[in-house]
């Protein structure tokens, strides 16, 4: 039996209205997120909570803030690892760190830091390169709950084997276990790494420039944005970098077709490392 294309269109309209309601009521702006992805996340919640349709979901999120917070978690992607794509970190050591070493003070921004795994990976890298003490890492996310988790730096023991393998592939110089203490089923990132990070709430969609960074890490966030929103964020990054500052994107993200493409040079194509032209 054929489903009417009209049904898809109607559903799409309901989702549009729902995203508008989220924006008007809570200020979070998902209106320029990639549709297929957003719909899958909302559909997941629809099924788990056995709701009739997206209009019913809209009604509930307006009247029930706790439900909205659940939905907010559904809509943010929090899948990451320490030293995710290890080859990126070895390229950062090889091509970016030598430049960072020339600065008396180093500012690094992790935009969309999720639960902090990649932030602490950077902290470890800086420590091993001997520049941690003169670095400040700023880690931001729009989701307060996730930021709290990131601050705690507690990760389940069963992912540590994977993280350790990544660390080794990334060119790690110590034993990975030097950087955490085991606590029953969890590990806790050591305090001296946490001390280098300032966590704060920042929304790439609605908030402004974060000043004079030497390096911005923003990986696997922009694939969820449509072209228009991507360009807005690329401009934000351009404005937030010092001249000669570096930008590192996710492996499948690119500046190539963006409005700022000619304002950056490509440092490493596969690793998606770019440098703001002076």
């Amino acid at each position: 039996m054929n489903q009417e294309p009209e049904q898809i269109e109607n559903e799409r309209l309901e989702i549009k209205l729902l995203l508008e309601a989220i924006y008007l009521k809570y200020g979070y702006d998902f209106r320029n997120y990639a549709c297929a992805h957003t719909k899958r996340r909302l559909e997941h919640r629809l099924n788990v909570d056995s709701m009739e349709n997206y209009s019913a979901m809209q009604h509930r999120l307006i009247h029930d803030e706790a439900f909205f917070n659940t939905l907010l978690l559904d809509l943010s992607i929090n899948v990451t690892e320490m030293f995710r794509d290890p080859w990126v970190y070895s390229k950062v050591r090889e091509l970016v760190v030598p430049h960072l070493k020339t600065y008396p003070f180093i500012k690094i921004w992790h935009a969309g830091c999720s639960a902090g795994q990649e932030v602490y990976s950077m902290g470890i890298l800086l420590e091993e390169e001997g520049i941690k003490e003169r670095s400040q890492i700023y880690a931001t996310d729009f989701n307060e709950l996730i930021l709290q988790k990131a601050k705690q730096g507690i990760y389940p023991m069963d992912v540590i084997r994977e993280y350790t393998a990544n660390y080794q592939k990334s060119g790690g110089k110590q034993s990975f276990s030097d950087y955490y203490t085991a606590d029953y089923d969890n590990v806790v990132i050591k305090q001296s790494l946490k001390d280098k990070v300032l966590f704060s709430s920042h929304n790439l969609v609605t908030d402004g420039v974060f000043g004079e960074m030497n390096l911005i890490f923003c990986r696997n966030v922009l694939i969820y944005f449509d072209r228009e929103l991507q360009n807005r964020v690329f401009n934000l990054f351009y404005e937030s970098l010092c001249p000669g500052g570096f930008l590192c994107l996710g492996s499948k993200e690119s500046l190539r077709f963006s409005s700022v493409a000619d304002k950056f040079e490509v440092v490493s194509g596969r690793e998606k490392i770019y440098r703001k032209k002076r």
């Binding site: 990639a34 297929a36 992805h37």
Partner: peptide, 12 residues
């Protein structure tokens, strides 16, 4: 695949 028939990637 988006409704506009462009490709999209995700790490969910």
């Amino acid at each position: 695949v988006e409704l506009e028939k462009t490709l999209a990637l995700s790490v969910e």
